[in-house]
Design a protein around this nucleic acid. Structure first.
Lengths: 234, 234
DNA sequence: TAGATAAGTGTAATAATTACGCTTATTTGA
DNA sequence: TCAAATAAGCGTAATTATTACACTTATCTA
């Protein structure tokens, strides 16, 4: 249906701008990081903000989020899910803008960390997030809370860890997300009892003399468990 | 800032319509119901749909949802929370419309059931939901899933049950939400152990010869538990 | 080759969940 | 009037999950 035809309906309604904003978390094997960038347009040009864009008429809202993520990080097929709608009347002094926020999880290796710096973007440690434009600090706060809640019943590690990882690394990730210490032995017992990890023959010795065995997720088994609605409370 | 001034920014972005849709669940002491109404405008005039409206320039998105709920049910201060954004390009043939969906829970007594019928609205049993316009069936499905998940860690009963209720009634509600039988005795034990119910001196004899004691929620204790992040898995 | 260190294994104590039998209050109708 | 029927309510044993923590192992470095 053409734009002309559509205009016949909903005459009384008033259009507004729709944007997407992505809160992107990364994990570099020790700390949780947040990707921010320097805004390129007025108002608030050159201030820190999360990554975002207006939604184009030819793309769905979800797709706009995927596009933005790819534009700024070069990454595709990233775990991303909706965070919520930010729709206060005066949240953006530039116009009436309703923003749909998303949060994404990506694993960091040097490659990505460098790539990102070329876009006037920067990975911040979660403990040193600067003041952001508009309601973006609130978005980050909400995203973090959602991440924590989510981590309670899903092994988030899929998205944040490299393909091969050790159990102590997985534990570090959960500690970073939840901000509390977990018992090393109980953590191992619990995650192994879920039967979603595959032990490999290699060891990672970057963190200890003894070295820790590498594992990888068994995605199939994991998907099955999610379907059954199992609770992975760690 | 006036609309004129705002136009100076974001010139390249293309505005679209923003709507809210509310998926409203009710519980009438035996079954979960869904509130639907006959659409008043073209396209799809007179077909069943959930309750919705376009967002006005002078109101936030959240407020639009509250307004709509009040317009159709006369009810204020209803438990409502965001469900998600529905933003496919061609989801509405009438225009490019991005909809933010909400779901709400209300308790049904005859008063409300009647009131609603005056707006060309109707309470449907969840097992007999008709075909709805646009992506509204999907919204209902998503809302139901969210309700179930939510009920796992919050005593939803606050919103769906009358002020005074019996433990068997609360159990029936959880069974309706989760679509599975719960053990009467274990349910009672668990809910009482949470220490959020106050036993009253009255009995409700509508359902049995012996009669069941009425209880009411202790909202203060409940809020405290939610703050502490306690899990109410029933 | 001893000492240091993180990885990994085991186990006992405690707490939560599940399954289910028995008693109680009340109404109905034989 | 009183036995049968029924849902409400109480208690307990068996199972399963969680927590706390002691001990052993593999490996590197000095």
């Amino acid at each position: 249906m053409s734009s002309q035809q559509k205009k016949a309906f909903y005459q009384e309604a008033i259009p507004m701008l729709v944007a997407v904003d992505c809160i992107i978390f990364g994990f570099d094997r020790e700390a949780l990081k947040l990707l921010l960038f320097k805004r390129k347009i007025e108002p608030f040009k050159n201030e820190w903000s999360v990554i975002g864009s207006f939604v184009k008429p030819t793309e769905s809202v979800d797709l706009a989020a995927v596009r933005v993520l790819e534009e700024y990080t070069g990454l595709q097929d990233i775990f991303m899910e909706p965070l919520g709608c930010y729709g206060e009347v005066n949240r953006d002094p530039g116009a009436r803008v309703v923003s749909q926020a998303y949060f994404a999880l990506i694993r960091l290796d040097e490659q990505e960390e460098q790539m990102v710096e070329t876009h006037q973007a920067h990975w911040f440690d979660l403990t040193t997030v600067p003041t952001l434009i508009l309601d973006h600090n609130q978005m980050v706060k909400d995203a973090l809370e959602k991440l924590r809640r989510k981590a309670r019943y899903r092994p988030i590690g899929f998205e944040l860890l490299p393909e091969k990882f050790t159990i102590p690394q997985l534990k570090d990730l959960y500690e970073a997300i939840n901000q509390r210490k977990l018992d090393r032995r109980n953590f191992r017992k619990k995650i192994l009892s879920m039967d979603i990890l595959e032990k490999l023959d290699e060891k990672d010795k970057s963190n200890s003399r003894k070295g820790a065995f590498l594992y990888r997720f068994n995605k199939k088994k994991y998907e099955e468990m999610v379907k059954k609605g199992v609770n992975f409370v760690l």
